[in-house]
Nucleic acid binder design. Structure first.
Length: 448
RNA sequence: CGGGGCGUAGCGCAGCCUGGUAGCGCAUCUGUUUUGGGAACAGAGGGUCGCAAGUUCGAAUCUUGCCGCCCCGACCA
């Protein structure tokens, strides 16, 4: 992409409304624009990141054995009356009436709808387990949206739902998502810690929030330091086999959010040296809720014994739009974003220091085409702006690699390559740059 | 939902108390000089002062109502 053709409205000054780094940087880097309280338009640069995160989530859901579908944003009130939640949900639900005065709502979640869809198509235990997911915009009319996309009212979410014949097999479905989430977040460069969460009236041990540690996190969290270094399940993981050992490895250590934190338990189970008390951002939540909806909504299957039983369900959410903010919280400095390769809007920022200079233009064009041919996402700055402005701009939008080409270096056949993550710079021979950058991109994208 | 605050050019703000020509910085456009880390000079364009009603000879400024947004708290992915 050539910068002159792109839509990238950068802000030099920090918008007054933005309180935290990710919100500030997303506005400054022209990733989002606020269109209302907690409602954002995704500008081209932000949209790229959002789509890359979405795609990682999708790939890992697929790997875990879930099947993608898409449910609507607008739902009918009657569906929610079946579960009793239409009255129970409260003001966070955005209620709408259509021209026929029918009561509708903008979905805050999809348990009712997926249950309705499931019961329409499944009759026998032989069809189980069923694992379905979709990635869709949701709306919750939060009392107080803030922190940009981290706590918006409209947000993009992946939610998956599992249907099993009994609790034991539901536990296996749960474990699939547990392992899939470890991989998902790891691929974005995040260390996400599964923490025991409040299971509400259902009880049991089958609810975990996945938390990434960050100073600006919304909740206080407490965990064992050793959780930070546990191995992530590899790409060769067989999700149809027993995943309990993986889950046990993570759940053996203490980790809890402030909702259920118990100081005595923490101190008893974790040596002083290993105690981590920090703040965290919730980026995923997995939950087993048994037959709550299947009973209320009559989602029954015939078991081996010929009797109808209510299916055991679980739901598994990932805050896709929120993750954009969470990744920035984890990777930034005062100058801008420092994207991990896997979610970077562009892998390489190509800076032409002297557009109009025939040699410089030719060198840049060759490298631009070479990188594109190698499948690298390049943003080519061929504008007339001054060098300082170009450098600051690339730092702000945070391309992991910057290739800087100007007459001075070119005179010696040299090109500068800067790594955004640590600022390290290298002089390379002009001919070597495409191979160097594309292999660095490949390395950055590879994941065990 | 309780408490606090703000709406004036694309962004950041002053002006309001004490009514009388709508301003500043950045950004944008033109020209000149610059050119390897957010340039300098000169000039230009850009506003129903959130909306509506009221008071007044006259309202960005005073009054009332409405709308929008932000912050703190309780709640949430």
């Amino acid at each position: 992409m050539k910068l002159s053709q792109y839509y990238l409205p950068l802000l030099k000054e920090t918008p007054a409304d933005a309180q935290i780094a990710s919100h500030r940087l997303m506005l400054r880097a022209g990733m989002i624009r606020q269109e209302g309280a907690g409602i954002y338009a995704w500008l081209p640069l932000g949209h790229r990141v959002l789509k890359k995160i979405e795609q990682i989530v999708r790939e890992e859901e697929d790997r875990a054995g879930a099947v993608e579908m898409l449910m609507p944003t607008i739902q009918q009130a009657d569906l929610w009356r079946e579960s009793g939640r239409y009255d129970a949900y409260g003001k966070e639900m955005l209620r709408i009436t259509d021209r026929g005065d029918r009561e509708m709502l903008f979905g805050p979640t999809n348990e009712e709808m997926i249950t309705e869809i499931f019961r329409a198509g499944v009759r026998s235990y032989k069809d189980l387990p069923t694992l379905l997911y979709h990635i869709q915009w949701k709306f919750r009319d939060e009392i107080r949206p803030r922190f940009g996309v981290m706590r918006g009212r409209e947000f993009l979410m992946k939610d998956a739902y599992s249907f099993d014949i009994d609790e034991a097999s539901a536990r296996h479905s749960y474990n699939r998502f547990f392992a899939a989430y470890l991989r998902t977040f790891s691929r974005m460069g995040l260390t996400a810690i599964p923490m025991r969460a409040d299971t509400g009236p259902i009880g049991g041990d089958l609810s975990h929030e996945f938390i990434v540690l960050a100073d600006t996190g919304e909740s206080a969290v407490f965990c064992d330091k050793r959780l930070l270094d546990l191995p992530i399940p590899g790409a060769d993981t067989d999700f149809s086999k027993d995943l309990q050992p993986i889950v046990d490895q993570f759940t053996n250590y203490y980790a809890a959010t402030d909702e259920i934190y118990d100081e005595k338990e923490f101190e008893q189970k974790v040596d002083e040296d290993n105690r981590v008390s920090a703040r965290g951002i919730e980026i995923g939540h997995i939950f087993y809720f048994g037959t709550k909806y299947s009973k209320a909504m009559n989602a029954l299957v015939t078991g081996p014994d010929g009797k109808n039983t209510a299916v055991h369900m679980g739901s598994y959410g990932v805050g896709v739009s929120r993750l954009v903010g969470a990744v920035i919280e984890a990777f930034h400095d005062d100058d801008g974003c420092k994207w991990p390769m896997s979610v970077a809007p562009f892998h390489v920022g190509l800076v032409n220091l002297k557009p109009g200079d025939a040699d410089t233009d030719a060198a840049c064009n060759n490298i631009y085409k070479g990188l594109q041919a190698a499948g690298v996402d390049v943003l080519y700055d061929e504008t007339k702006a001054r060098p300082g402005e170009k450098f600051a701009r690339m730092d702000l939008i945070g391309a992991p690699l910057q290739v800087v080409i100007g007459p001075r270096g070119l005179g010696e056949g040299k090109v500068e390559v800067k790594r955004r993550s640590d600022g390290a710079r290298e002089e390379l021979a002009l001919e070597a740059v495409v191979e160097y950058a594309s292999s660095a991109v490949r390395d950055g994208l590879s994941h065990p």
